[in-house]
Design a protein around this nucleic acid. Structure first.
Length: 287
DNA sequence: AGTAGACCTGG
DNA sequence: CAGGTCTAC
């Protein structure tokens, strides 16, 4: 199935928004989306070939296809010259619309772990508890996690393990209604997310942005923290730095964050002797 | 209200 | 030490 959409798969799928996409040798991306093993290949800057699902509308939406890139880029560019200079270099990068539960549970695991480790933990949890889809496993439901949690130690989640189970319990019992976060505005959403044990301001911002469409969220991870200091001279508490980002970039601050993140990723990659930081990506230069 | 230290594991 | 958070000052 061919999708006509301005989207660039490498930065969109490969740089840490979602953690289940692997770049294959032929340059296509394989992942699991809604319990289907899906492969996407870039055909041109404005089209991708999708195998493994017939849900054109769904996958387009997942890819952020409802976002008007022109408007968004114009909006964040007019607010900052540096971001304006980055948007040209990375056309077609989009913010995904991830599954609510999967994104929430995944980012709960993301604390104090690098991209590679997050991917390992997520894949392990899927392999242990998710539906067998052949080449890959689906992301497990809360019930699947609870039913199988006798062997969860094998997933090696470390101190995240108990938080992960507690989250599954609270969702399964109805104590947490994941869909209720969709109805909230940004402030309400991150506040409610932070009521979950193991979720602080950074993870809440990521989930608000990548799952619940709060495009003004401006997550400050270690990389963005350095960028904010180096480029803008902004330091301080999480709250202060993220508020600066939201105020500077406005309603699409999350997109600005992704451009800043990606540009820093690429420049460090270029400067590094071992060029490939992207865990799943086969890197020609290092091979 | 705002900030050190500990925290599982692995590259 | 790593794409933070919790707990205890």
């Amino acid at each position: 199935m061919r999708i006509d959409l301005e989207v660039s798969l490498d930065p969109t799928l490969g740089c840490g928004q979602a953690h289940r996409w692997h770049k294959l040798d032929d340059g296509s991306w394989e992942g699991v989306w809604r319990n289907q093993v899906v492969t996407m290949k870039q055909i041109s800057p404005t089209s991708v070939e999708v195998i493994g699902t017939d849900d054109r509308k769904g996958i387009t939406r997942y890819l952020g296809g409802d976002d008007d890139l022109e408007t968004i880029i114009s909006e964040i560019s007019k607010r900052d010259e540096y971001v304006a200079s980055l948007t040209d270099r990375c056309p077609g990068m989009r913010i995904l619309r991830q599954d609510h539960w999967e994104c929430l549970a995944t980012y709960l695991l993301a604390t104090n772990a690098n991209v590679k480790r997050i991917g390992q933990m997520v894949e392990s949890v899927c392999d242990h508890f998710g539906d067998d889809l052949g080449r890959r496993h689906g992301f497990p439901t809360p019930k699947q996690i609870l039913d199988g949690c006798g062997c969860i130690a094998e997933c090696r989640l470390g101190f995240r393990e108990s938080r992960f189970i507690t989250l599954a319990e609270r969702v399964e019992s109805g104590d947490i209604d994941v869909e209720s976060f969709s109805e909230m505005n940004y402030e309400e959403c991150v506040a409610a997310l932070q009521d979950i044990n193991g979720i602080g301001p950074k993870v809440a911002d990521c989930v608000a942005l990548f799952a619940f469409e709060n495009m003004e969220a401006f997550p400050i991870d270690a990389r963005i923290s350095k960028v904010m200091e180096d480029i803008y001279g902004v330091t301080g508490s999480y709250k202060a730095v993220s508020a600066y980002g939201r105020e500077k970039f406005g309603e699409y601050a999350g997109y600005a964050q992704e451009f800043l993140y990606h540009a820093d990723f690429i420049s460090r990659q270029a400067r590094s002797r071992n060029p490939c930081h992207c865990s799943w990506q086969k890197c020609r230069r290092s091979a």
